[in-house]
């Protein structure tokens, strides 16, 4: 048992009697890992606690809190998942009043596999593992170095593989709207594959990810066509940071810019004419 796994287990065991359940990963049949709600009624199940691969646990938290708004829960979350939870909280998806965050810091190997820019938690009071530095995503630089026709050709090629499974939207912790624009015939036409260019699906989604994408890479991981769509989200996130000084999930009480009016000095950063 690795150090992180055993200390995570200890942390959960300590908090388990005081809460209704702890959301963490559990190894199931065939070694397949899935989110699970550990409870004090069955502490023995903690023997099957798992760390990797990461799963969309913010969504699990939402599902449980929607059905049990007053439940006292704890959740094991990595840096990206914590950001996801914080953003969902800011968009009024649930209350964090009764939720304890257990921060799980990613190790070097995990950071490399995700190309994560911020693989550690900042809000969680309880933490497990030592934080390591994030890495720069090489694909972002690659896309930025392309000329305009090259970018167009690159995305045409990538999006031509899309089978419109809607998996990226389904798995995204920030895609929680009850009515989704991507299911609207006005914006995304049905019955056409590969999608005509420009890809309305991906561009509308990229716009909706503005100041929301927390960089968890779940969309890219679940994509059956391996489309690196989150590169666009991250490039836009960089601009949002410059224009509106907002970083999703970073500060608990900073409101997202799309919910606010322009503030002093923000207009100058947008590059619009005076």
């Amino acid at each position: 048992m690795s150090d992180r796994l055993s200390s995570l287990r200890e942390t959960i065991e300590k908090i388990l009697p005081d809460v209704d359940g702890v959301i963490a990963l559990r190894t199931g049949p065939g070694g397949i890992v899935a989110p699970y709600l550990f409870s004090k009624e069955h502490p023995g199940e903690l023997a099957e606690l798992a760390l990797w691969p990461k799963e969309p646990v913010p969504d699990t938290l939402k599902i449980i809190l929607r059905a049990h708004p007053d439940a006292k829960l704890a959740i094991v979350c990595r840096g990206c998942e914590e950001r996801g939870i914080v953003e969902m909280f800011k968009h009024a998806q649930f209350s964090l009043e009764n939720v304890t965050l257990i921060g799980l810091q990613c190790d070097q190997q995990e950071v490399e596999s995700c190309q994560c820019f911020k693989p550690f938690t900042v809000h969680a009071k309880l933490t497990v593992g030592q934080p390591v530095e994030g890495v720069r995503d090489p694909l972002m630089a690659k896309v930025m170095a392309m000329s305009q026709p090259e970018k167009l050709a690159f995305w045409k090629e990538e999006f031509s593989h899309c089978i419109k499974c809607y998996g990226c939207r389904n798995i995204c912790p920030q895609c929680f709207c009850n009515i989704c624009a991507l299911e609207d015939e006005k914006w995304v036409e049905t019955g056409r594959l590969p999608m005509p260019n420009p890809s309305m699906y991906h561009m509308v989604r990229a716009m909706h990810m503005t100041a929301k994408c927390v960089g968890c890479h779940e969309c890219e991981e679940t994509c059956p066509a391996d489309i690196p769509m989150a590169v666009q989200f991250r490039l836009i996130a960089r601009d949002v940071k410059e224009m509106f000084n907002y970083e999703p999930g970073a500060v608990m009480d900073q409101k997202p810019p799309q919910l606010l009016v322009l503030e002093e000095g923000e207009y100058e950063n947008t590059g619009l004419p005076h």
Binding site: I32, A34, P53, K164, C165, Y166, G167, E221, T222, P224
Partner: peptide, 13 residues
């Protein structure tokens, strides 16, 4: 299911 050998975390609609 992310670490399943067949679908490797992918699904269709």
């Amino acid at each position: 299911a992310k670490n399943h050998v067949v679908s490797e975390g992918g699904l269709c609609i």
